[in-house]
Nucleic acid binder design. Structure first.
Length: 845
RNA sequence: GCGGGCGUGAUGGAAUGGUAGACAUACCAGACUUAAAAUCUGGAGGCCGUAUGGCCGUGUGGGUUCGAGUCCCACCGCCCGCACCA
């Protein structure tokens, strides 16, 4: 008897797909296009189970779309710039470029055995000069369009990686990669003008119906829109006004002080003449060196002695304080404090003996605020105290709106929408990144490089023996001539944040070899990405930046307007997890063990291991399973089948040895089934042909729905069940052959090699990969009779089998006539009978 | 503090408001085998009962409905995102 030998089968079919170039994407007007993209990997050198899961999901979609008559684009590339390459060069010697391209070659070799339906002819790495040269061209176009600019700014400085980080890359006050406490530094940096698009990036989220609500919400929170008002407060010394931003102008009656940032122009002016203030400001700067410290810092302030006039109440003056909690780069860098209705202002007021005055009460409760600020929800009704805009009992939100109207009509302030989103600083003081294509000239200043000089390639001869950016100390690369006046000048030595590289790669895949960033016809044909798949960890950074880039590329003519939102549908898949096996050494420190070294909770020497619940696979905890080992033991189809089978795709899936084995057993069973059917008597009649074919059509229906709705685990469950049905079937050869071939087709997106082999074995025409997806026959989905459960008062008591087209009244009669129903009714008369055709009957007494 | 999500057998999980626990793992029994593995067949939410069957059951409490795991309210627990944002 022949056996299921995945290694042989998989190599053979990959060879065929490759030879026939069936995954090569070519523009065509005949079929609807479909662009499937999984977030491209960083070339660390090894693929892991997370990659297998991510790319398998994309592959299921891509293969399904191919079979349903779409012209599919399914590309793969490498997010190849970044610090690990430099760290490796520093730690083990060698060159980042060699390290990176070596890793890419290794990972490609590990990925190809998975049998993914990828058009490898479109492959590129972001560190290819052909890619980053076009990125430099984009940069120059953005510069011309005013979408990128240079400014002196307080930046987040990562002291370990010795580079600048964007706000988005600072997590809990620490660098997203290094984990080091981030410091504040003042540097001249390049910025993308993403804040100009804040409103648009926020409102367009509403149109992304096929994105997870969670991701949209995270982006919305990150952009942080708030509606408020700018109010100028007139200084009593006649030296102009201080502009404050507030979202709660309705509380103006309770305003008791103004607080400005230590970096505010007012503070800076006073610093020069008042030593006491200067030392306070100095203290604030010192304290604020790390983001982490800022979060815990005590609220402190100092009275400047300045006074401003209350904009509404004649004769009322408010003191101007410098507050360490006021941010210069949000709003106007100055606020008015209303202690009664803001806990932070209240704490501040109590500490420094400032007035506390209610602007409103809760209805029926006129207690003045003492130690707890009165901050009801904006939707709650409150009673305003002699409010200047004439409002009395209303919600805070209505109060805010009425107050803004009042201020605007009386020329006291201007309604303003603020965003939390800041401009995206892209300068990085690193070598292994895309050089920023500008030149610094003593005479002309900052001069853009000429497009014909692109790409500005990274020099190869660099050293990493001293910290910092090797481009900064490169003997010749840095020196150049000014593109404008031709005199000697210096190149910009900062490179771009690697998030720039991943912000437009999806567009480049539509024309990967073009001499311009994109080609109009290709971009128009292939964009947008119809289905994007990746991890939730990119919910903010990568996806927000890509949305910005798509708009910026549209403005600069590199993408059609219809590609404003580059990803029509987004799916965020869960991780692959594994139990952690731990013992302790003589000093009680944990020692971790690889899953393959543990059998039934014991090491090979019999030591019992402690089992820690499943967590994300990580090298340090050794709870990893190498896809390569799984593929060599069971084949790629088993790995693919398993990562999809046990959990819904958006949730984490726990890798278990028994689960992987079960997947392999099942595929073996299907293969054996195919073998058995191939050897059946051809012309002998069987029993239950129709029942088998009905089950088959139900399976077609369920699996199709499952794939369409990302219910891969449920689709696989249906395939298990149908396999069991087929295995037990006594149907004749032709029905069984039809069933096994359909089963192969339905399995083909998940286990393409096995499916291909079965198809060929049964004499199928061509390849299963390109065969038309089966369609469930409606007539085979409905049967002549139907079994209805019967409830009495909502509790299931019996079931009856009746003709499917039996009229309601007849069904009612049949239901009541049932013995079990009669027994439950016990002589009572039904008040009402509800018949849901084809589903259920409920008798109400 | 603000915002969001999730609680179903031993486990992962299934279930357009309509028979809760599909499918899989682990478990138990049987067949085959000298034996084991592999394979195949069957069982299985809990409690009561020899059994036909009955009662209970989707974190807790309430509500809407003929009917709630699913919708609404409150609470408890866990997870995630944001957070000096005026």
């Amino acid at each position: 008897m022949t056996r299921y030998t995945p290694a042989e089968i998989e190599a053979r079919w990959q060879e065929v797909w490759n030879r026939d170039e069936i995954f090569k994407a070519v523009r065509s007007a005949d079929k609807p296009k479909y662009y499937v993209l999984e977030m491209f990997p960083y070339p660390s050198g090894r693929i892991h189970m997370g990659h297998v899961r991510n790319y398998t999901m994309g592959d299921v979609i891509a293969r399904y779309k191919l079979a349903t008559g779409h012209n599919v684009l399914h590309p793969m590339g490498w997010d190849a710039f970044g610090m690990p390459a430099e760290n490796a060069a520093m730690a083990i010697g060698g060159h980042p470029k060699d390290w990176t391209y070596g890793n890419i070659a290794d990972m490609r070799d590990q990925m190809k055995p998975l049998g993914l339906s990828i058009d490898w002819s479109r492959e590129f790495a972001t560190c290819d000069p052909g890619y980053y040269g076009q990125q430099q061209a984009l940069f120059l176009d953005f510069l011309e369009a005013g979408l990128v600019y240079r400014k002196n700014a307080q930046v987040n400085w990562d002291p370990v990686d010795m580079t600048v980080l964007a706000n988005e890359q600072v997590i809990d006050g620490k660098g997203w990669r290094s984990g080091a406490d981030v410091e504040r530094r003042e540097l001249t940096q390049w910025f993308f003008k993403i804040s100009d698009m804040a409103g648009e990036l926020k409102s367009a989220l509403d149109g992304l119906e096929n994105w997870p609500a969670k991701v949209r919400l995270m982006q919305e929170n990150w952009i942080g829109e708030s509606r408020g008002i700018d109010i100028p407060f007139e200084r009593t010394d006649g030296k102009g006004t201080i502009l404050c931003y507030s979202t709660r102008p309705d509380t103006m009656r309770g305003a008791s002080f103004i607080a400005v940032s230590p970096d505010h122009p007012v503070s800076k002016a006073l610093e020069a003449e008042n030593p006491e203030l200067a030392s306070f400001i100095e203290e604030c700067r010192k304290m604020g060196t790390t983001e982490a410290a800022m979060e815990k810092a005590e609220k402190k302030g100092i009275d400047t002695g300045l006074r401003v006039k209350h904009p509404v109440y004649e004769g009322v003056e408010l003191p101007v304080w410098i507050g360490n909690f006021v941010l210069m780069d949000y709003g106007t860098g100055a606020v008015f404090g209303c202690p009664a209705h803001d806990q932070r202002d209240l704490d501040f007021a109590r500490k420094y003996g400032l007035d506390v005055r209610n602007a409103f009460y809760m209805p029926g409760d006129e207690t003045e605020v003492e130690d707890v600020a009165l901050v009801p929800a904006k939707t709650e009704k409150v009673v305003f105290i002699d409010h200047f805009a004439g409002i009395a009992e209303t919600t805070s939100q209505d109060g805010i709106n009425a107050t803004i109207d009042y201020f605007e009509t009386h020329g006291l302030g201007k309604g303003q929408t603020q965003y939390r989103l800041r401009d995206w600083g892209l300068s990085r003081q690193r070598y292994w990144g895309c050089p920023i294509p500008v030149v610094h000239c003593a005479d002309c200043g900052v001069v853009p490089e000429k497009k014909e000089n692109l790409p500005i390639e990274l020099p190869y001869d660099v050293s990493f023996d001293v910290p910092g950016n090797p481009l900064d100390r490169h003997p010749t690369w840095r020196d150049t001539n000014c593109p404008s006046c031709g005199k000697p000048a210096k190149r910009e030595t900062d490179t771009m944040d690697t998030f720039v590289d991943s912000s437009w790669y999806f567009a480049r895949f539509t024309a990967p070899d073009a001499k311009t960033p994109t080609i109009k016809e290709d971009a128009e044909y292939w964009m947008n990405v119809d289905q994007y798949i990746g991890g939730i960890e990119h919910a903010i950074l990568h996806l927000l930046y890509s949305r910005f880039f798509a708009r910026a590329m549209q403005i600069t003519g590199h993408l059609p307007k219809s590609a404003n939102e580059p990803f029509d549908a987004l799916f965020t898949q869960g991780m692959v997890t594994h139990e952690i096996y731990q013992t302790r050494d003589a000093k009680g420190r944990p020692v971790y063990h690889l899953p393959e070294d543990v059998t039934e909770g014991k090491l090979s020497d019999g030591t019992e291991v402690e089992i820690i619940p499943s967590a994300k696979m990580s090298k340090s905890k050794k709870n990893v399973v190498d896809p390569i080992n799984i593929i060599s033991a069971y084949g790629a189809d088993t790995a693919r089948w398993f990562v999809l089978s046990d959990s819904p795709p958006e949730r984490d899936v726990e890798w278990t040895a028994s689960g992987a084995e079960a997947a392999f057993k099942h595929l073996t069973r299907v293969w054996n089934l195919c073998d058995r059917i191939g050897k059946m008597e051809r012309d002998t009649a069987g029993q239950g042909d129709e029942a088998l074919l009905r089950a088959m059509h139900a399976c077609i229906h369920d699996v199709t729905m499952g794939i369409e709705s990302f219910g891969f685990n449920a689709a696989i469950a249906k395939l298990y069940a149908f396999t069991a049905t087929l295995q037990k079937s006594k149907a004749g050869h032709s029905a069984q052959r039809e069933a096994i071939m359909t089963l192969a087709q339905l399995m083909s997106p998940m286990t393409p090699h096995l499916a291909e082999d079965i198809w060929a074995h049964q004499g199928g025409k061509g390849l299963v990969t390109t065969a038309t997806w089966p369609v469930a026959d409606e007539a085979m989905l409905v049967s002549d009779t139907v079994t209805l459960p019967i409830q009495v008062n909502g509790k299931r008591r019996a079931e009856i089998t009746v003709p499917a087209d039996m009229p309601k009244e007849e069904v009612e009669k049949a239901a009541i006539a049932d013995q079990a129903v009669q027994r439950t009714l016990d002589g009572a008369t039904p008040k009402k009978i509800i018949v849901v055709p084809g589903r259920i009957v409920n008798v109400v007494v």
